[in-house]
Design a protein around this nucleic acid. Structure first.
Length: 848
RNA sequence: GGGCGAUUAGCUCAGUUGGUUAGAGCACCUGCCUUACAAGCAGGGGGUCUGCGGUUCGAGUCCGUAAUCGCCCACCA
């Protein structure tokens, strides 16, 4: 048995993962066990995993390993997301760097470049998963763009089309001029920007009067087809029905009345650009206004912008303002901050843009979810519960979902056109002349089907029957809108069931100052660096136990280091145990002494409590309790005591039993080091800790009375040490005591210090309940310090006694509080009174 | 404008259904190389739980209210 004195995480974590994998421990499918299933939130194949992923997969692995050890047939299904727009952007850039233009390259070549990218980054992600130690079943790995998922996506599209849930329509959508595609509302991020309110003169036709029209986007005026005033706005009532002359364009457009114009806002007059603003689009519908698109897909101005054609929207604004000013049409510029939508992926300003796209009609789907969430046994249970509100809120406000994307990397829309006809189906129409829609689907459309498409749906697969609905989904709260909401309504409409029973929501990882980690701030931390430095076990334990679920974590490397210390502690405690039980053949919990009973009781209680926490996904609490148990109960108390009886079979058996249990309890959190230590046990029940059993609570190993008295003994030991230290008593002392407890005499190293008559004159009594030791020492220089310590203690005891006496004198308290609480209070009062008496005695001896 | 969360020790965070004198890690102070671990051991100091009001025998915990910070959603011509 050899173990380094210092825990070497690199050595310990090496080679274990592949061994587990090769032995098939990650595989699912044992029909003799009850099923348990989690599907991984598929990471984008765009890059490498960050700390958020590390936290996300750590939580899942903890749950899966815990359930596996409890005898479930666990399927943790891995996979990745093709991430349509994100990946496409990366591949476009990669090609561009090589001097290749996407459109010249062509669709087929481009897609093959995307697949190359996918394989490359897929391998990368898999190797990072391996470093994290996550026990996913690679036999079931899926990709959101693989054949089976494509079939699922197509079927859903076709069915929805036939049900009238999916439709094609011309609407204002969010347009990303960089990626040249439509976006959903969720993919738009609003940022406050310093802009301006440009006040322009719209002359009233045939007069020298003008309306002051304020706009933040003057360049869209080429698409103006009206100006609107509020019907109740007295200032403008007389103008309704007249025309204004559109500046620069010199075209007459009507002044209309519409509720959309807010008399309180700006000048109360609003220009109406139906093709470039969602509100104006609605106004246009109400008044049958023409829709004029004035920009090209790349957000340069088109032919409707006359001489500005070809300019970017920014350049156009600049030039236009100059011209307006020269013509005396610019009244003033009023600086203002307003919020402007930006593309989540490319970061460019989103253009509200009139365009023909495919949409999912949300009304009924959302309503169904809201109804299901009312049903206790059918709803998705959020942990923490408060996040359910986010789901419900999304369902309440949901507008139709724009699902078509003008991209190539993704599921191609199964619609074909021939003249004015549309065909939607699983296969292309047989006749010639049909042309397939060029567009692909929003990446979230396919990931919304993930909980069941990965299990073989729409085929009637065994996996589908066995593992759906999934038991748990784990994700961060920022993804509820994007993904969770869509999985829920898709599953409930398509399968009639919730996608998963429990939805566990964790927080985001920030830097130490609480800022988001980002490339531009340079404050990102690579989980792989942390693993190199402290090991995956330390990182996993830290990420999953430092904060409660749902709360953001401020990443602090020092805490990872301190988790490493904890593992080092476990390592060394194990080293002690293993070095001393090498010859143990079997563990027999017989002839237990009180210290053994004490530890076993604590141990059983920990099992009970940890199990409860694990079942409620309270990993932070489970972590804190096991940490405290190992460090304090097991190491500081039991092992220290065990040193004095290390040759006894009982001690060895208890050390073996409790250490094994500790390894089992800790294994889901830190699989590597626990497996390493487990492999060094003199005998074990299973080849690997991974497939051994999670400890079960055993009532017969609870010894309440012994535990109470040993607790008292440890309390007494602490008191002894404290008083000895407070009174500056070094090693020159003797004791007078009738105590026989080995625990006390051994741990305090008093065996050779017991006398009946001491050579020292000064004494210090250490008393707690029935335990009493008189320390004899030379106090010539210390009496003042002892006196001060005693006075301090006296004061605090008196304070506490008064508090308790008042409490117990309160009849309401005695009558209404539970009996055990009151009794406890009485006991404490009595014991404090005893202590006080002793303190006062001693003070008298010292001459007070 | 609507909603959610947070506010507890110097820092980062726990704190179950209200119940002894509110906990941990790190940092700090004192004393220790005690043969598992000095990345350790034995002790210690440090908090009127953001303010105010209420319910209760009893409030960090429940209710109301105010403040500060953060996030989400909506609006922003």
């Amino acid at each position: 048995m050899e173990m380094e004195t210092k825990y070497n995480h690199q050595k310990v974590e090496e080679n274990k993962y592949n061994n587990w994998k090769e032995k098939g421990y990650f595989n699912s499918g044992d029909k003799n066990k009850p099923p348990f299933c989690i599907v991984i939130p598929p990471p984008n194949v765009t890059g490498k995993l960050h700390l958020g992923h590390a936290m996300n997969v750590s939580i899942q692995d903890i749950i899966i390993r815990y359930k596996r050890m409890q005898g479930f047939d666990c399927l943790w299904l891995p996979g990745m997301d093709h991430a349509a727009i994100a990946t496409e952007a990366k591949v476009v850039k990669r090609l561009k760097d090589k001097g290749i233009d996407k459109y010249e390259y062509g669709r087929d070549n481009f897609l093959s470049a995307c697949w190359d990218w996918t394989h490359e980054f897929g391998d990368n992600i898999r190797s990072q998963w391996a470093k994290m130690g996550i026990s996913v079943d690679y036999n079931k790995e899926r990709f959101t763009l693989d054949e089976g998922l494509n079939k699922a996506v197509t079927k859903v599209f076709v069915d929805y089309y036939n049900e009238g849930i999916i439709y094609r329509g011309e609407k204002i959508i969010n347009w990303d001029p960089e990626a040249k595609t439509a976006l959903s509302n969720e993919e738009v991020i609003y940022k406050d920007v310093e802009g301006a309110f440009y006040h322009l003169k719209y002359f009233i036709e045939g007069t020298n009067d003008y309306l002051d029209v304020a706009t933040t986007r003057p360049e869209t005026l080429f698409g103006d087809t009206a100006v609107a005033v509020n019907p109740d706005d007295e200032r403008y009532k007389h103008l309704i029905g007249k025309n204004v002359i559109l500046p620069i364009v010199n075209k007459a457009i009507p002044i209309i009345k519409d509720e959309h114009a807010d008399p309180e806002f700006g000048t109360g007059v609003v220009k109406i650009t139906p093709a470039h603003d969602p509100n104006d689009f609605e106004v246009g519908n109400r008044h049958n206004l023409e829709r004029i698109v004035v920009m090209n897909p790349d957000a340069t101005m088109n032919e409707f912008a006359f001489k500005y054609e070809g300019m970017t929207r920014e350049k156009c604004r600049e030039e236009l303002l100059k011209d307006l000013e020269q013509n005396g049409l610019l009244i003033n510029i009023e600086p203002m901050t307003h919020s402007v939508g930006h593309s989540e992926r490319t970061g460019v300003m989103v253009e509200p843009y009139l365009s023909k796209q495919w949409f999912v009609k949300m009304g009924e789907l959302a309503k169904h979810v809201l109804e299901t969430q009312e049903k206790k046994d059918e709803k998705v249970n959020f942990v923490p519960e408060r996040f359910e509100k986010i789901l419900n809120h999304w369902m309440e406000i949901s507008y139709d979902w724009c699902i078509s994307r003008q991209l190539w990397w993704g599921h191609r829309i199964p619609a074909w056109y021939k003249d004015d006809e549309i065909y939607v189906g699983m296969e292309a129409p047989k006749e010639s002349g049909w042309v397939q829609d060029e567009d692909v689907l929003d990446t979230w459309f396919s990931s919304a089907l993930w909980p069941f498409s990965t299990l073989g749906w729409p085929n009637n697969s065994e996996d589908m029957a066995r593992y759906f609905p999934n038991d748990v989904l784990v994700t961060a709260y920022d993804i509820i809108f994007f993904w969770v909401a869509r999985m829920v309504f898709q599953a409930e409409h398509i399968t009639g069931q919730r996608p998963f029973k429990d939805c566990i929501i964790h927080g985001l990882i920030r830097d130490k100052e609480g800022r988001k980690m980002s490339k531009s701030l340079g404050n990102g931390v690579d989980p792989m660096d942390m693993i190199d430095e402290y090991g995956a076990d330390a990182l996993r334990f830290y990420l999953t136990t430092d904060v409660a679920l749902g709360t953001d974590l401020r990443f602090d490397e020092e805490k990872v280091a301190s988790t490493w210390n904890f593992i080092n502690k476990l390592w060394n405690a194990s080293r002690f145990v293993l070095l001393n039980i090498e010859d143990l053949k079997e563990a027999r919990l017989e002839n237990l002494k009180i210290a053994d009973k004490w530890l076993l009781t604590k141990y059983e209680r920990i099992i009970k409590s940890i199990t409860k926490h694990m079942d409620k996904y309270e990993f932070n609490l489970a972590g804190a309790e096991i940490y405290d148990f190992i460090w304090n109960d097991f190491c500081s108390n039991y092992i220290e005591a065990a040193k004095f009886s290390i040759d006894s079979e009982v001690t060895k058996s208890v050390l073996y039993g409790v250490l094994s249990g500790i390894l089992e309890m800790l294994h889901p959190f830190m699989p590597f080091v626990t497996e390493e230590i487990y492999s060094k046990l003199p005998f074990r029940t299973s080849d690997s800790l991974m497939i051994s059993n999670y400890p079960k609570y055993e009532e017969q190993l609870i010894f309440d009375n012994e535990t109470k008295s040993v607790d008292k003994i440890f309390e007494f030991i602490s008191l002894f040490r404290k008083l000895k230290l407070e009174n500056n008593i070094g090693s020159d002392f003797e004791v007078i005591t009738s105590l026989k407890e080995d625990l006390i005499l051994n741990l305090l190293k008093l065996n050779d210090k017991i006398v009946t008559n001491s050579k020292y004159n000064d004494t210090l009594e250490v008393v707690l309940d029935n335990y009493k030791i008189i320390i004899c020492y030379d106090n010539s220089s210390n009496s003042e310090e002892e006196k001060n310590a005693l006075l301090k203690e006296k004061e605090s005891l008196e304070k506490s006694i008064t508090r308790r006496e008042n409490l117990l004198a309160n009849e309401n308290y005695v009558v209404k509080a539970p009996e055990n609480i009151v009794n406890q209070e009485r006991e404490n009062l009595a014991s404090e009174k005893e202590k006080l008496a002793l303190v006062e005695n001693r003070l008298k001896e010292l001459g007070n």
